[in-house]
């Protein structure tokens, strides 16, 4: 089909011209495309280059690296499981404390607090997010650990005769998984709170009124409408917090105790992957350096896996709650 050019002065003449907005629109498309691709490329580059540098350790130690239960570089023992254990444990402890607290603050600010109290609460939480992690670490190291030691040992004495509990809550020197987890909880609460608050704010007023008009109390309304509506978003918020907790280095290094150990005693000392990297890297020989970079790779893979897993769980739960389309 051939297009005959319309005669000059025809109302259709401009249809075949490129409008004035075409150039900027093309530029806009290019910029967004590049930005979007960049994220993927950078992530890929990190993964590839890190793996290359970690390869000597991977090939040298093989399965004893990934599944070994002893990490004592000075004795040539490079099993990473104690470090993975420490990382996972302190992150879980952090989430256990931070998630209820964050959701509570977010609900208070969005649903309960009188308008004049909202701003101050939000500001305080946001300032908490701005405190550098090394400050948290130092503060906890000098001011909290002695107190933690007293409290932890008190609990340990109280549950000494009870099986399971006496394993989980054993004697303490202050530095411990629990101490690190608690400080991490404090550090990730602001980010989880602020994202959760945004998510809760997107629940339609209309839906909330619907529940209240049926005689729901505020809590029943929150449970029946706000939570189901926000599950995906809140999971995203928790993942952001978890990412921060798993990667936190300095604060954890100061208060966890620096002993790589697979111990069930939450009040006992341990070690995490980032803390170990931070401690060892400056004086490491070639092989240890490669092993430490390997820890970085594992950390990256772990966070990606957790993220993907959480997204899937949300989709599955969502489908069950909201009904099939």
């Amino acid at each position: 089909m051939t297009v005959t050019a319309p005669a000059d002065g025809s109302p259709a003449a401009s249809l075949l011209e490129e409008g004035a907005g075409a150039g900027p629109d093309r530029a806009f498309r290019t910029v967004t495309l590049v930005a979007g691709t960049m994220v993927l490329v950078i992530l890929l580059l990190i993964a590839v280059t890190m793996t290359v540098r970690a390869w000597p350790a991977f090939s040298e130690f093989g399965t004893s690296y990934f599944f070994g239960t002893e990490w004592v570089p000075s004795e040539g023992k490079y099993g990473i499981l104690p470090l993975v254990w420490g990382t996972v444990l302190v992150s879980l402890i952090a989430l256990v404390f931070a998630v209820p607290m964050s959701v509570g603050i977010a609900l208070f600010v969005n649903e309960l607090a009188p308008r004049r109290l909202r701003r101050p609460v939000v500001t305080v939480v946001d300032i908490l997010a701005a405190v550098p992690s090394v400050v948290f670490g130092l503060w906890a190291f000098y001011n909290l650990l002695p107190g933690f030691q007293t409290v932890f040992n008190g609990i340990a004495d109280a549950v000494a005769g009870i099986p399971v509990l006496n394993t989980l809550f054993g004697p303490s020197t202050g530095s411990s998984f629990m101490s690190a987890g608690l400080i991490l909880a404090l550090m990730i609460t602001p980010i989880i709170t602020s994202v959760t608050r945004e998510v809760f704010a997107t629940v339609p007023e209309n839906d909330k009124s619907g529940a209240l008009a049926l005689g729901a109390t505020r809590w029943e309304m929150v449970r029946g409408v706000v939570f189901p509506h926000s599950m995906g978003g809140v999971t995203g918020a928790v993942m952001l917090g978890l990412g921060r907790a798993m990667g936190e280095t300095v604060a954890v290094a100061l208060i966890i105790g620096a002993r790589p150990e697979i111990s069930l005693n939450l009040f006992g000392v341990g070690e995490t992957m980032p803390a170990q990297i931070f401690r060892q890297l400056s004086e490491a020989g070639a092989l240890l350096r490669s092993a430490l970079i390997g820890l970085g790779v594992i950390l990256l893979v772990l966070t990606v896996l957790v993220n993907v897993g959480a997204r899937r769980a949300v989709v599955a739960v969502d489908r069950r709650v909201k009904g099939t389309a």
Binding site: D207, S209, A211, A213, V225, V321, G323
Partner: peptide, 10 residues
């Protein structure tokens, strides 16, 4: 209500 507001449930 003015706008139908069923919950995002079954």
């Amino acid at each position: 209500f003015q706008k139908p507001n069923p919950f995002p449930k079954s």
